[in-house]
Amino acid sequence: MIRLERVSKRYSNGREALTNVSFFVDRGELLFITGRSGAGKSTLLKVIALLERPTRGTVSINGRNTGALGARHIPAFRRQLGMVFQDHKLLADRPVFDNVALPLVVAGTPFKDIDKRVRAALDQVGLLGKERMLPMELSVGEQQRVGIARAVVGKPPLIVADEPTGNLDPDLALEVMRLFRRFSEVGVTVLVATHDVHIVREFGSRELILTSGEVTGGSADPLPSLVASR
């Protein structure tokens, strides 16, 4: 599903955020990316979501090299990808329904389908009945779940979450992570960047540890075939 080969990212200020990162993720896998803040977790997710371009190396998603995608094709690419952010990036002046419906509106989904699918997504995150409320009227945990509903409403094959539990207490964090595991169980590939090591241990899912932009451990497949061939 996702294959990174020797990916490096150097920002224009000279800081090297990623160095020679290679790994592979299968369809339906839940992969945690851990490490201290500043270790390159966010950059890695941005490179995968095409919010940043890698300086070197290739990223393939579903067998397609994303480096070959021109700016014109990025919107279509992002519709195949659900993104969850620590600050959830909801529109404060729009009710929950509109926030969750945005990916469908952007994709030109017919209105009667939008209604059905938004309710289904809200049901999945346990927020059915709060469609008319504004994000501000919800708790932090609920806001994060609205963000997750927005990420899954378009039924993307891949979900990328950057510190989705950063602002949540342990119980809520666990609940959100369970949600991600449920998505992976139905075949969605889920990448979660987090510094919450305890949760990761508890889940027993695959883990990729980043230190200063390099993969320094974890159970991620380090692409043995690639290493052998070079």
């Binding site: 919107p75 690419f77 992002r78 993104m83 529109l91 990916p103 952007v106």
Partner: peptide
């Protein structure tokens, strides 16, 4: 600009 950024984030094209 926030709204525009989020719209682009979920795959809104420039023309949209």
């Amino acid at each position: 600009s926030d709204e525009i950024e989020v719209t682009k984030l979920v795959g809104g094209s420039n023309s949209f």
